[in-house]
């Protein structure tokens, strides 16, 4: 600590001298009383994420996820694919018929990553700085596709904050954790909503596993 900081803290201690300090309240739990079912979690994530302008696909397994990915790349004419080293993900991307590169995010068409967590309640994607998650992945590429496993889905923001220690690589806070709620946006001109601002123009989540969507829900249909 610098001397200036120590002196500053001393001044604050003096300013507070005569006052009582109220207790620190325990963290307010916003968790629902009953743990929502997997179906309910995915439904909530889908509705929140789509309301934010994201595109959501639920696939029962790697095979259909590969098909989904190759369809997304084909339909969006996304040729230069950036993908960082997560073995299951890179093999998925290769299965979709593309050779990913790891270098310059500013020249790719799409960046495909996984996420550390998805948060159902607010439709969030949680990514921490890591060997496979460059900080710019969520902001520099024109399209960002997040492929996540069902086990990565949690219910609330509180659950995500509590679990950060478990999901990061070495248990220590990474230099950056980002909570993404849909594509970037601005309303700085007459409060008119514009998407995107500086981030990707398109944000997709492909969720794999826990049985995938029930047949009647239309497996991974395009959102209306």
């Amino acid at each position: 600590m610098t001397e200036a900081a120590a002196a500053g803290l001393k001044r604050i201690r003096e300013a507070l001298q005569s006052s009582e300090m109220p207790e620190l309240p325990p963290v307010l739990s916003l968790a629902p009383e009953e743990t929502p079912s997997p179906q309910a979690m995915v439904q909530r994530f889908r509705s929140e994420f789509e309301a934010l302008g994201g595109r959501f696909f639920w696939e029962p397994g790697s095979e259909t996820a590969t098909d989904r990915l190759s369809k997304l790349l084909r339909d969006g004419e996304l040729r230069r694919v950036a993908c960082f080293d997560v073995p299951w993900l890179t093999s998925l991307v290769r299965g979709a018929g593309v050779e990913p590169f790891e270098k310059d995010l500013s020249v790719c068409d799409v960046c495909i990553t996984t996420a550390h967590m998805l948060v159902a309640e607010q439709g969030l994607i949680v990514m921490a700085a890591s060997p496979w998650g460059p900080r710019a992945a969520s902001s520099l590429s024109p399209v960002h596709i997040v492929v996540a496993q069902f086990a990565q889905l949690v219910w609330g923001l509180g659950d995500a904050l509590a679990r950060i220690g478990e999901v990061i690589e070495d248990g220590e806070m990474p230099s950056d954790i980002v909570f993404i709620a849909g594509p970037s946006r601005t309303a700085d001109i007459e409060k008119t909503l514009v998407i995107p601002a500086h981030g990707p123009r398109e944000l997709c989540v492909v969720l794999i596993g826990e049985a995938g969507p029930p047949a009647e829900a239309g497996a991974g249909e395009e959102p209306a």
């Binding site: 902001s139 923001l157 806070m173 950056d176 909570f179 993404i180 849909g182 594509p183 970037s184 981030g199």
Partner: peptide
């Protein structure tokens, strides 16, 4: 509900 990006930088 939340802003589009929340960064926690350490």
């Amino acid at each position: 509900k939340l802003t589009a990006y929340t960064s926690v930088i350490t």
